[in-house]
Design a protein around this nucleic acid. Structure first.
Length: 498
RNA sequence: GCCGCAUUCGUCUAGAGGCCUAGGACACCGCCCUCUCAAGGCGGAGAUCACCGGUUCGAAUCCGGUAUGCGGUACCA
């Protein structure tokens, strides 16, 4: 044997376009990507769209776009949903490889490893029920394995379209999982399973094996939910005379109740996180650590650093709960690390169009300093788009009152603040200037700064806590700021100065 | 039911027989800073390492069993 050539390592991800890119698929793709990059291998994207009833172009677009958004790239496969394939093993969409599957299915039929099955869904269902009643393993009973020519002809005459079943050899299947080590299954416990449907559509267990061989995949890294499917695949591989790849099964991502992460209980679409303002860097960092760790106390890594450190054998065996708090924290870390221009650019989709890029640039340092959390950022966006009427409706007069102050005193403070604001000539404010003027006015009238700013904060922002007071005033401009203060005075039943 | 995989603070994890009276991070609590909220700094609480039994001078780490959870058991992927 010569030294193994690292470039001969070929891995793949095989998403099925039956929905938007799922968190779990994204992480499996990420681990495959990191593994491929780490060993200098080739990364293949294959679209598993054999289940045409469920698959749509829309989902394929979502999957490819979001994979790109995360920074995951592949060497072979469709580079965009409407574009062509790249790579010598194409096409990379299973819906376009039907002749290959038909050919391999025929081989199995010819060699006797597969046989036609005329059982109807109802008949199969009945058998399963019967087995359950008798506490037997629910598996195919092999009825069609040895049909006489007459029986076969009778079924054909009935118009039944046979499915193709693989005859599973009763072998003990053992393999050395990249992550779990030695695993053994007994295929004698398996029933013969269908590999091609009655309507001619080949099924997952079959096509995945055919394609992995055809695309020269050497390492299959996939979710743990496929662990117990692997002995089926190995049986198929042996029957077809293929070369057996290495398998690695990564742990599942879990709902808070520790069941497999699902749409019902968690937000699973990558797109949804993207639309809420999560940065791809944060998502990647977060996902990478859900089931893997570099073994040190470092925890902030770029995609490149991850690729340099990632070892497939270090991947954990137990499932990991998706902890959104941690994602939020990481998102904050990455937002804070962004330069102002970068932040403004990333924020653009979340900020109303009326606020031009100049304002956004001024807003950027403010956001970075204080509104690093997603929740706060979207609050700010909402704040900026709220009409003054909506803001006014938000607060109750009691909220305006500092501790131990009466409505009259509070109105007085607001009137003072109003005067300070009015004293500024320019239509736009500078936060620093505003703060200085308000502070000195307050002190001149014997107010503690904290007491003074509280009613002002509620009047301007409509809430007790964030966003930052002076930044908000700066963004609103003088006119709207004064309007809000006036509205607050009205609520307090106070006179509005002319 | 059967088969398989897993099991360290609430969560993500460090840990590969003595360095562990189990370390870090998120979340939580307190203090400092501060116009607020954050961020940052300091500190606190939080895990009899699922349980039982072995091996060993010594076990979170090795072995066996039990329990619990999860996954698979489709003409879905």
């Amino acid at each position: 044997m010569s030294t193994p050539d690292p470039t001969s390592i070929r891995v793949r991800m095989a998403p099925s376009p039956t929905g938007p890119l799922h968190i779990g698929t994204a992480r499996t793709s990420l681990y495959n990507f990191l593994f491929a990059r780490h060993v200098g291998g080739t990364y293949v994207l294959r679209v598993e769209d054999t289940d045409v009833a469920r698959g749509t172009d829309e989902w394929e677009t979502d999957i490819i776009d979001n994979l790109h958004w995360l920074g995951i790239t592949w060497d072979e496969g469709p580079q965009s949903a409407d574009g062509g394939d790249i790579g010598p093993y194409g096409p990379y969409r299973q819906s376009q490889r039907m002749e290959l599957y038909a050919r391999e299915a025929d081989r199995l039929l010819a060699s006797g490893d597969a046989y036609h099955c005329y059982c109807t869904p109802d008949e199969l269902e009945a058998v399963r029920h019967e087995q359950e009643r008798n506490h037997e393993a629910p598996r195919y009973n092999g009825r069609c394995l040895r049909l006489t020519d007459a029986e076969r002809a009778a079924f054909e005459a009935e118009g039944r379209r046979p499915a193709l079943r693989f005859q599973v050899p009763p072998d003990k299947i053992r393999f050395d999982d990249l992550i779990r080590g030695d695993v053994e299954f007994d295929n004698a416990l398996l029933g013969d399973f269908v590999i091609v449907r009655g309507d001619g559509m080949p099924l997952y267990h079959f096509v995945v094996v055919v394609d992995d061989e055809a695309m020269a995949i050497t390492h299959v890294v996939r979710g743990e939910d496929h662990l117990s499917n692997t002995p089926k695949h190995i049986a198929l591989i042996r029957a077809l005379g293929y070369r057996e790849p290495r398998f690695g099964h990564i742990p599942l991502i879990l709902n808070p109740d520790r069941s497999k992460m699902s749409k019902r209980k968690s937000q699973t679409a990558i797109t949804a996180y993207r639309e809420q303002g999560y940065l791809p860097e944060a998502m990647v960092n977060f996902l990478a650590f859900l089931g893997w760790s570099p073994g040190t106390e470092e925890e902030i890594f770029s995609l490149e650093e991850l690729a340099a450190r990632f070892e497939i054998g270090e991947v954990h065996k137990a499932g990991a709960v998706f902890d959104k708090d941690r994602l939020d924290y990481l998102n904050g870390v990455y937002i804070r690390s962004l330069a102002d221009g970068q932040l403004a650019y990333r924020l653009r989709p979340f900020i109303p169009e009326e606020l031009d890029d100049g304002i956004l640039m001024r807003l950027a340092p403010l956001l970075k300093e204080r509104l690093v959390r997603l929740g706060d950022a979207s609050e700010l966006a909402a704040f900026l788009t709220e009409t003054d009427d909506q803001i006014a409706a938000l607060y109750e007069p009691e909220l305006l009152l500092p501790k131990g102050r009466t409505a009259a005193e509070t109105a007085e403070a607001l009137t003072i603040a109003r005067g300070a604001l009015g004293a500024i000539d320019q239509p736009d404010f500078a936060a620093g200037e505003l703060e200085a003027i308000c502070r000195s006015s307050a002190e001149a009238h014997g107010w503690k700064a904290g007491d003074f700013f509280r009613p002002l904060r509620v009047a301007i922002t409509g809430r007790l806590v964030s966003p930052p007071l002076f930044g908000s005033m700066e963004l609103l401009g003088r006119e709207r700021t004064l309007a809000r203060v006036d509205e607050a005075l009205k609520r307090l039943g106070a006179e509005i100065p002319a």
